[in-house]
Amino acid sequence: MTEALVELENIHKYYKQRRRKLTDKNKYVKAVHGVSFSVKEGESFGLVGESGSGKSTVGQVILQLTDLTQGSVRYRGKDVASFTKRNLKDWRKKVQIVFQDPYASLNPKKTVGWILNEPLTIHKMGDKYYRKNKVLQTLEDVGLDDSYLNRYPHELSGGQRQRVAIASAIILNPEFIVIDEGVSALDVSVQAQILNLLKRLQKKYNLTYLFISHDLNVVQYFCDRIAVMYLGEIVEIGKTEELGTSPRHPYAEALFSSILLHDEEEKRIVLEGDLPNPADPPSGCPFHTRCKYAMNVCRVTKPTTSFFSGEHKVSCHLYNEKDTVRNIT
């Protein structure tokens, strides 16, 4: 539980923006801007943030589905970028992804059986009988039976599709799975089933999850640690209990206040304005345009990281000085 399985160090991912005019300078969308964190073996790590905050890009960066602008991804201490083609293919067995939209994540022209067989075929694992057994066993793991083998994705419901997507991710016996908004597109009742399924699989196969979501309820229920992203940066990171009960960063505070509806004393903080354009992020602290505690220093300099008990880290000027402006309760 202590060893770091995946470590991200100072990840940057910029997307080039199309030039409008020939004379325009190249503009970049800073999707991810200096993100570092590590996921420990066996835990569920939650990455939350509103849409456009770069959380999905982080997931794709880890899986090498998109190239990095800067920074490094380490898997069990080894830099993934330094892998040879063959090592990369072997490593791909250990790291998998489940996408948000179960309608787009399964090839509509292939049967469930084919989809589940594919990973085994790619890695030339076992013979025909081994593969067939493995497929059946994995289907059973996700709560489906062999009657699904010859069905096409369009014959399945959203929840069933997501089960198939999960099955195709776990069939290679991975160690680490990125769940990119894995339950967001599903009904609430189905969400709960899928979450429980994921937990069960985690126990059975000792999986490590990176759970990317905008749904705080789900993340709080599911994850051991949470990182809050805003505009391509992590603003706060910590254990679920700490973050959930006492978020420090004004943005995290606003986010978590939105789900504490039962508690009458807690007031819901409503953020004004929209997420700034990631192609033209604000100077200083990225959040200062919407922060109700914004000070002069926030507009000019980027906050450094302050540490709280244990692993609770916050990037905010409020906590940079010894004598804080605001009383921390």
Binding site: Q60, L63, L65, K89, R92, K93, V95, Q96, I97, F99, Q100, D101, A104, S105, L106, N107, K110, E118, P119, I122, H123, A165, S168, A169, L172
Partner: peptide, 20 residues
């Protein structure tokens, strides 16, 4: 599409992606 990305994540090469 996500199914193409998922397949790349499973180690599929270009030829497999194109033809399958």
């Amino acid at each position: 599409y996500d199914f193409v990305k998922a397949s790349i994540a499973k180690g599929a090469g270009s030829i497999r992606i194109i033809f399958h």
